[in-house]
Write a protein that binds this DNA or RNA. Structure first.
Lengths: 202, 202
DNA sequence: GGCATTAGATAGTAATCGATTACTATCTTT
DNA sequence: AAAGATAGTAATCGATTACTATCTAATGCC
């Protein structure tokens, strides 16, 4: 009769914690995810979390690290598998949408961190992630113009901003509908609009 | 020698409260704007707020009402002054950007309310605002297609989603740069990209 | 099989939040 | 000028928060 959960090695417990936070962020406002709520979902007491993390911000920091690693890795894979810059942009777009579909809490946490007033470590990591993401997009746009795939007059920065905004729009739509899975269905149509905006005239 | 502020009539005090919240939202995370912070900025004690509002949510509700009234009114004015649907879309876009420039806290509060888990009145009003906004955009897109200004194959919903996303992208960019005023400068370039996406082939 | 290590439980703390209360200052009306 | 109505203060409440000190028991190692 032991209701206590089996012990987990520290590294594994950290991993589970991060995934739990991302799960919770899909259901409630990331801003008011408490350490108590995280622990409860894990079947563990609240104080136990502080055996593995020195502070709440350290948890959020680990979440951002988790997101940055996985998202950028998948995006880089998509880019290198693509035949052309424009093809790569579409692959990145769909990869990102897939990632959001699997982890609906991620964009909410990212935006939530960016909203913060104080310069926490987690916020800094969120900024860095988006910066790296933007750099990759910028390179693809530049290459696309060199190859004549994209319009020569295209404003690189505007193209990157619009790319991110296009995804943001889909996220907001899913936030309004309360249905996250559906963005996968509307993603291709939305991207083809974006493509039309940046493509070279035929 | 009276350091106490002069009394304000109730209606005026409510108005000042709303504007104070919007001001604060431009500087800090809307999620952790406390009633104490609002009162402090107003030069009034925290308890005084509850003479005019029954709860904190009632304050946020008043803020959403304020936003909805002003934003939609300005947008309707922009639409009726436009010569064509495509012209109207551009006018709405720039009007919205102007509004955000004047009140940088607004998009943050809107997104913050949408993030909420509970169905507060303030959240419901935010949803209604965006819904009405989307309907106006949808009508413009439909008219634009009828008049041959926009591409016939255009997906109406995708066009609306991309419109909102385009603005969201600019907002996120300003959130990263920490410079809200600059979005006014980059707005025209970004909109011309959007226009390229929806315009009929020439 | 005994023992050090450590994950987790238990039971707190101090700070902060929204909200309420009793009281007071100001304004308005007649 | 008195009196009622309204606006605001100051203090405080209960709830919740992140975080911590101390105790218990499971785990791995020899």
């Amino acid at each position: 009769m032991n209701s206590r959960p089996a012990y987990l090695p520290a590294e594994e417990r950290r991993e589970v914690t991060v995934e739990t936070v991302i799960d919770l962020a899909a259901e409630q406002n990331p801003a008011d995810i408490t350490t108590g709520a995280i622990a409860k979902r894990m079947g563990v007491t609240q104080g136990a979390l502080f055996r593995h993390f020195p502070s709440k911000d350290a948890i959020l920091q680990a979440v951002m690290e988790w997101v940055a690693e996985r998202l950028l890795a998948r995006i880089d894979r998509a880019i290198s598998a693509a035949a052309s810059p424009l093809d790569a942009l579409e692959a990145v777009f769909m990869t990102h949408i897939d990632f959001i579909s699997e982890h609906p809490g991620v964009p909410r946490m990212l935006f939530g961190e960016l909203q913060r007033a104080e310069q926490t470590m987690a916020k800094r990591m969120a900024q860095t992630l988006i910066q790296h993401y933007g750099e990759r997009l910028g390179r693809l746009v530049a290459e696309g113009k060199e190859r004549g795939e994209l319009a020569q007059a295209l404003d690189d920065k505007a193209a990157v901003t619009l790319f991110i905004g296009t995804i943001q729009g889909l996220v907001m739509q899913s936030l309004l509908a309360g249905d996250v899975r559906r963005i996968r269905a509307s993603a291709p149509g939305t991207f083809s609009l974006y493509r039309r905006a940046i493509e070279a005239a035929k």
